[in-house]
Design a protein around this nucleic acid. Structure first.
Lengths: 119, 119
DNA sequence: TTAAGTACTGACAAAAATGTAAGTAATGAG
DNA sequence: CTCATTACTTACATTTTTGTCAGTACTTAA
């Protein structure tokens, strides 16, 4: 949880208020968020269990946390079906979709500049 | 400091190895890094004290930390002059400069989508 | 000898992010 | 009545990031 008035939070809020770049990075900057967004972009609507299968290393708790934050920030939608066993699907919102070209560019920059896998 | 083999670090490393997007976000994702990069892009070479003046809210310790990481990751150069009192200047490397179009796009997305300052 | 200027560093503390392991709720199938 | 299925939750622990505050090193100028 985030403390209402730590220096840290005040700084974050100030920065985000005055800097679109920082704001954006704050939204997509969690450990598993780029992954989640990427997968939803490629696959469209996915059930919780399918997402989990696509990202085996994340724990359930953290996955749910990241999904909740993405939802709160308006990047993904959570669709709950009144069934048993439960069915919940996640998909990008319009704002979520609008990230796509940007994420592609971020991805490309990384692919060019990061130390490569096989050497 | 980073522990060599926490699950957290292992996850981070795996992700960065396989995902250019995550790698990039890791490099530019510190609290003050977007700010620092932005300022260096606009102003070219700057002394430590000038950077500090441009970002009044950051503490000295954290500013130095963020600068060291940016340097280690090859995004900025640190130029030390053998003078007294000391003079140290920071400027973008070529890789640092290559971030510019990407950062502009990230910034634009944020400016369009974040809650606005005056309402 | 003392002070001024610059770019830090160190010891410590707080807050935030991430991870672990076990448990829950609802219900239909057998 | 018991079990399987799915999408979580809860309590707790660890790791990482960020922040506070005081101090240091070096030399020149007064």
């Amino acid at each position: 949880m985030r403390k209402e008035s730590s220096t840290n939070t005040l700084n974050r809020n100030n920065i985000n208020l005055n800097c679109g770049m920082a704001y954006t990075l704050d939204l997509i900057g969690g450990r598993w968020k780029p992954n989640i967004l990427w997968i939803l972009m490629k696959n469209g609507k996915l059930r919780y269990s399918e997402l989990k299968k696509s990202i085996p290393d994340v724990s359930e708790r953290i996955l749910v946390l990241q999904l909740r934050e993405l939802e709160k920030d308006g990047l993904i939608k959570r669709l709950v079906y009144a069934e048993v066993p439960p069915r919940v699907e996640y998909e990008l919102t319009n704002d979520g979709h609008s990230l796509k070209p940007m994420l592609q560019i971020i991805s490309d920059w990384g692919d060019v500049h990061r130390p490569k896998n096989g050497n």
